[in-house]
Design a protein around this nucleic acid. Structure first.
Lengths: 136, 136
DNA sequence: CATAGTGTACTATTTAGCTATGACAGTGAC
DNA sequence: GTCACTGTCATAGCTAAATAGTACACTATG
């Protein structure tokens, strides 16, 4: 049984989901700047996934300059906090865009969108819950 | 050049994206209950996509009882408006969940989430725009 | 009847993602 | 040097998604 686990969405590449998983850990401080990251083989074993897939995940993260690789030693979270802030901003912006544009495409008015969010946040503060949405 | 077009996300199956595209048209009333839907070959030509992929899209939509098939005639939007309402509710709920849980995972407080949405909605009311997000 | 349009089915091919497995190279501790 | 870890590379195989092309069945129209 894995120590940590991710609920994978079959309609999205695993390596992208693991990327976001790592990014979240960095953004929220679970992984701090300069921290050593689990090795390819460790993380592969923990998530029950092929090491090659983890390798691809890290290659992407490195391309985004979020992690640094020291050959023979391991991988480390970038020390540039500005980079981490930028990632957080980018991820939040993507979430926001997807949500608002999506709701507008469904025909919701701007005021409705705001009140739906406000209501959802007050009625069930903990994550992972079902939420009701009033529609017109 | 296609009359209508969709910006496809390569990280998600096309047939699912077309599904949502059709669902949105139904939910917003662009396609009304009982309306005839473009044929497999028509829609395939319009979206520049293989008819087999469109066929798969419609099979899924039919499984969700959103469209009805009359062999030899074509496909039609369901006449049950309650079904359409349910779809809208479901799609909005999915968007909401994804957004709120995502923001919470990024470390945003509930109040922050509400104000970010309120600000985004007021500052750029039209869809398809970039939005800034203030983070702490 | 023939025709044109509809949905449906089938085979074959390509590509991306993921897996399985093995091998090689750099680093630090002993 | 040896060992155990690290990252990296390469080959092969499997599956789902999408394409291409063909064919068949149903329906309305004439």
């Amino acid at each position: 049984m894995p120590i940590v686990s991710i609920e994978f969405d079959n309609n999205m590449p695993i390596y992208l989901q693991i990327m976001n998983y790592i990014k979240r850990q960095i953004v929220t401080g679970t992984l701090k700047p300069g921290d050593k990251i689990l090795s390819v083989r460790e993380l592969a074993a923990e998530l029950q996934i092929n090491p090659n897939t983890i390798q691809r995940t890290f290659q992407e993260l490195e391309r985004e300059e979020i992690v640094e690789t020291r050959r023979g030693l391991g991988r480390y979270v970038t020390s540039e906090e500005s980079k981490i802030m930028a990632i957080k901003k980018e991820m939040a912006g993507a979430l926001l865009d997807q949500f608002i544009i999506g709701m507008q495409e469904l025909g919701f008015a701007d005021q409705d969108i705001v009140s739906i969010v406000a209501e959802a946040v007050t009625e069930s503060p903990e994550p992972g819950q079902e939420r009701g949405v009033n529609h017109t």
